[in-house]
């Protein structure tokens, strides 16, 4: 077994600079406070962040703005709109070399854009479904009159103890042609149905995996809510629907915002689920980035896509921040 790290010198330099800054920070804290200080306990986390978050982001930015030879370029971003620019150039050159007209041989370069739009659409659907399913679930769980509440919480948490890959693969053995559902249908005398490898299967996998991320922030907010407010609303003549609509929902907005963020972000960047449950039929943005890195070996284009993705998430976060400025719903937004 071998695990070699062959990073360029400047990556090591970046890590070195990070370390120096880190040591300086610690030294200043100690000097300023003459002894132990609370922030000292955060130092392992700071170190962790520097090595595994800051440095990788620097690396990604470096690759995104350079070409294969390490020279500065903006092509990786320009080529977003015409992803097969290089290939089309090769084809044109080949036509010229042979003196044949190859103008009909052009590869559509819209794959990045198409995939992004598809991913956003899938993530949007996933978020809406999670909200529609998750809000009532959170309401039930937070309802103090319901004895089942805490049991429900446990039931939601238990599947999360398992690795998400395993849970996704488990769906496969339910939905396959020879899987549990189809075997049951066939034994009852029905025709089998093709449940695997459609975009709805992918959606199902995403909703299943991300639903807890919608339920728990809402549950936390509802659980902290003063239920006397809804009692007061009822006393003042609201029926139960009006209480929900006028009191409970507005008070739980921070939880909803946090839930939307926590579902939408991983949904957009989903990979693996489309491959396992979608059969590699359609790509999502995560798959595209993966194939840039692993199949094509084009780290520069892959990094540019990753950077655009991060930018997109930052923008959506800052929009959501406007709705929940105090971070009451868990502070992610």
């Amino acid at each position: 077994m071998i695990s070699n790290v062959s990073l360029p010198w400047w990556a090591w330099a970046a890590m070195g600079v990070g370390l120096v800054v880190f040591i300086a920070m610690i030294a200043m804290t100690i000097k300023r406070n003459r002894g132990m200080h609370r922030s000292l306990f955060a130092s392992p986390y700071t170190l962790w962040m520097i090595i595994f978050t800051v440095v990788p982001v620097i690396l990604i930015s470096y690759y995104a703005f350079t070409d294969a030879n390490g020279h500065f370029t903006l092509d990786n971003f320009k080529n977003f709109w015409d992803s097969h620019y290089e290939a089309n150039k090769v084809i044109a050159a080949e036509g010229k070399r042979l003196g044949v007209d190859y103008s009909q041989y052009i590869v559509r370069g819209t794959v990045n854009w198409d995939t992004l739009v598809y991913s956003l659409w899938m993530a949007f659907q996933c978020t809406v479904i999670c909200l529609l399913l998750g809000y009532p679930a959170a309401l039930f769980m937070a309802d103090r009159k319901m004895k089942l509440g805490s049991t429900l919480v446990v039931l939601f948490i238990i599947p999360m103890w398992m690795n998400f890959l395993l849970r996704t693969v488990a769906w496969m053995s339910l939905l396959e042609d020879s899987g549990l559902i189809n075997s049951l249908l066939k034994s009852l005398g029905f025709e089998g149905v093709q449940l695997m490898y459609t975009s709805n299967t992918v959606l199902l996998g995403m909703v299943y995996n991300y639903l807890p991320f919608m339920v728990f922030p809402i549950y936390t907010v509802l659980n902290k809510m003063d239920f006397r407010l809804s009692e007061a609303a009822a006393d003042l003549g609201c029926n139960s629907f009006q209480t929900l609509y006028k009191v409970t929902v507005p008070l739980s907005v921070p939880g909803i915002v946090s839930g939307i963020t926590m579902v939408f972000m991983p949904s957009v960047t989903t990979f693996f689920i489309p491959r396992v449950l979608g059969g590699g039929y359609t790509m999502m943005f995560g798959d595209l980035i993966e194939s840039k890195f692993l199949t094509e070996g084009n780290w520069n284009a892959g990094s540019a896509l990753s950077l655009l993705m991060m930018l997109l998430i930052l923008v959506s976060l800052s929009i959501l921040r406007k709705v929940d400025p105090n971070g009451e719903g868990g502070g992610l937004a």
Partner: peptide, 12 residues
């Protein structure tokens, strides 16, 4: 790169 582009086209 032409192979890759054509394959991406199929995937898309």
């Amino acid at each position: 790169s032409v192979y890759e582009a054509l394959w991406m086209d199929l995937k898309n």
